[in-house]
Amino acid sequence: MLLLAGCTALRQEAPPAAASTNAAVVALLDKAQIQSSAGQLPEASGSLERALRIEPRNPALWQALARVRLEQGLYRQAENLAAKSNSLIAGDGALRQENWRIIGQARTRRGDLQGARDAFEKAAQP
């Protein structure tokens, strides 16, 4: 039950469980999560940027930032940031799929339906 709840939450918003081994980064990611849930999106963005200064090549952080931009309605930015996250991933198929989902959502919301379909297709590939 708990596991199930965890899984659905993961789909929706939570960054992957072990996004970093650095406690400071994890703390900032948590903070961003809380700020984001409270609708404090610029603040959430600020916390993620702090985390990125510590781990600039961590794709999970770029992905979290892409998600915040999506919430902010900045769809092109969300797309670019998800692509940036993808460019830093070696392996990790799940993270890559999630980036494609974000890109798909961003394209949907700005009316690029064909582009969105392509992205969701890539998100479906393991």
Binding site: P42, S45, G46, E49, L52, L65, Q77, N80, L81, A83, K84
Partner: peptide
């Protein structure tokens, strides 16, 4: 610049991290 605050400490403008491929 990361951000600009007023003299009273109210956020005035952020310069968020944006990227373009």
């Amino acid at each position: 610049i990361r951000e600009v605050l007023t003299a009273q400490g109210e956020p005035l403008q952020r310069y968020p991290l944006n990227v373009e491929q």
